[in-house]
């Protein structure tokens, strides 16, 4: 008898927990866009308590695939959708919504930055990733082997970086020592090493992970500053995108509109990215 009472209490509790009218919006994809969307989701839920927003990571590739197979409403991507991806999902009409701008910055361990390697040309970076330069000595740094950190092939950050640096978004990187996934995994690896080079979204730079400037072919040195991203002079920039299947409707539409509103764009800026209205 006690068991039955306990059980029915439990069932009542579960019923009380699931509100009948909650709408759920599922979002997944790029870890570059993730901080913006998850902060926006929290604020959106305050104003719309009847909406649940579930935000997952996974990378741009996951974002596109899950929208394509219609498992989620909104995908987060930090690169363009490839033609293969469009071919793979003939039933899905991908529609992208730009919510901000970002730069992909080559980063080095602080020890390397402090030793004087604060700028590299795109050609030098390409040589590092191709395995033609393997010691910091060759770049006027300390006598240390370079720990070259690559990213998983479908990651948006990698697509954008490799397109500009190596000329092909899916270029091989025979010089790579590690292949990692999300921005924070990459960030951790660069912090833990004293001789690493990697690629990170501009918003993920900090004291231990220093972004280096790019030496342009004409000799001009361009810092990865917000100003240079806004005026477009930093060479590796990209749009932060949300992707939906066709025109978003209902909750998804309202949520995207919220991110595009003044309040939503403030979140974009707070996270270290560039607002699209600027």
């Amino acid at each position: 008898m006690r068991n039955i009472l306990f059980l029915s209490a439990l069932i009542l509790l579960f019923n009380a927990c699931s509100k009948p009218n909650t709408k759920t919006i599922t979002v997944a994809g790029s870890t570059t866009v993730l901080p913006v969307v998850s902060t926006a989701a929290e604020q959106y839920k305050k104003a719309h308590p009847d909406t649940r927003i579930i935000v997952n990571a996974g990378g741009s590739g996951v974002g596109v695939n899950q929208v394509g197979s219609q498992k989620i409403e909104i995908g987060m991507i930090s690169r363009a959708i490839t033609s293969q991806e469009i071919d793979q999902y003939p039933d899905t009409s991908f529609q992208t919504h730009s919510i901000g701008k970002d730069a992909v910055v080559p980063v080095v361990s602080s020890e390397i930055f402090d030793s004087g390697v604060t700028s590299l040309s795109l050609e030098q970076i390409a040589k590092i990733y191709r395995g033609e330069i393997s010691n910091w000595k060759e770049l006027n740094g300390p006598d240390k082997d370079i720990l070259v950190i690559d990213k998983e092939k479908s990651r948006g950050t990698r697509h954008v970086f490799m397109k500009i640096v190596m000329g092909d978004k899916e270029a091989d990187a025979p010089g790579a020592d590690l292949v990692l996934g999300s921005n924070n995994e990459e960030q951790t690896a660069v912090v833990q090493s004293d001789a690493a080079i990697g690629m990170l979204s501009n918003a993920w730079l900090n004291e231990d992970v220093k972004g280096i400037s790019i030496i342009m072919p004409d000799g001009e040195v361009i810092e990865p500053s917000l100003n240079n991203i806004i005026n477009g002079s930093f060479p590796i920039t990209r749009n932060l995108l949300l992707v939906t299947n066709g025109d978003p409707v209902g909750g998804a539409r309202k949520f995207i509109d919220f991110i595009l509103s003044k309040e939503g764009q403030d979140i974009v800026t707070q996270n270290g990215y560039v607002s699209i209205v600027q």
Partner: peptide, 21 residues
Amino acid sequence: SPGQTITSKLGREIGESAFGS
């Protein structure tokens, strides 16, 4: 030196591979 196992490869890539490809 670093390497890759079957499971780590699956864990990293299964999410981004299109079903049926």
